[in-house]
Simulated assay, not measured.
Amino acid sequence: MDNLKKVLGILWIALALFTAYFCLFELAIPKIKIGHQEDLVFGIIIMFILTPIISIGLGLFGYYSLCGEYAKDKT
Score class of each variant (00 low, 15 high):
residue 2 D to S: 11
residue 3 N to Q: 13
residue 4 L to R: 02
residue 6 K to A: 15
residue 7 V to P: 01
residue 7 V to N: 02
residue 7 V to E: 08
residue 7 V to Q: 03
residue 8 L to T: 06
residue 8 L to N: 08
residue 9 G to L: 01
residue 10 I to T: 05
residue 10 I to L: 12
residue 10 I to C: 02
residue 11 L to D: 04
residue 12 W to S: 07
residue 13 I to G: 05
residue 14 A to M: 07
residue 14 A to T: 11
residue 14 A to L: 14
residue 14 A to W: 06
residue 17 L to M: 02
residue 17 L to N: 01
residue 17 L to F: 09
residue 17 L to K: 00
residue 18 F to V: 00
residue 19 T to L: 06
residue 19 T to S: 09
residue 21 Y to E: 05
residue 22 F to I: 02
residue 22 F to L: 09
residue 23 C to V: 10
residue 23 C to Y: 15
residue 24 L to I: 14
residue 25 F to R: 08
residue 26 E to Y: 14
residue 26 E to W: 13
residue 30 P to Y: 02
residue 30 P to R: 00
residue 32 I to F: 04
residue 33 K to W: 03
residue 34 I to A: 02
residue 34 I to P: 00
residue 35 G to H: 06
residue 35 G to P: 03
residue 35 G to C: 04
residue 36 H to P: 03
residue 37 Q to D: 13
residue 38 E to T: 06
residue 38 E to K: 04
residue 39 D to T: 06
residue 40 L to E: 09
residue 40 L to I: 05
residue 41 V to M: 05
residue 42 F to Q: 11
residue 44 I to Y: 10
residue 44 I to S: 09
residue 44 I to T: 06
residue 45 I to F: 14
residue 45 I to V: 08
residue 46 I to F: 09
residue 46 I to T: 03
residue 46 I to Y: 07
residue 47 M to S: 07
residue 47 M to K: 12
residue 47 M to F: 14
residue 49 I to F: 15
residue 49 I to L: 15
residue 49 I to C: 10
residue 51 T to R: 11
residue 51 T to V: 09
residue 52 P to G: 03
residue 53 I to M: 13
residue 54 I to Y: 15
residue 54 I to H: 05
residue 56 I to Q: 13
residue 56 I to D: 12
residue 57 G to E: 03
residue 58 L to P: 12
residue 59 G to K: 04
residue 60 L to W: 14
residue 61 F to R: 07
residue 61 F to P: 01
residue 61 F to L: 13
residue 62 G to P: 04
residue 62 G to R: 00
residue 63 Y to W: 12
residue 66 L to V: 04
residue 67 C to T: 15
residue 69 E to V: 04
residue 69 E to C: 09
residue 72 K to V: 04
residue 73 D to A: 09
residue 73 D to P: 06
residue 73 D to M: 06
residue 73 D to L: 05
residue 74 K to E: 12
residue 74 K to G: 04
residue 75 T to Y: 14
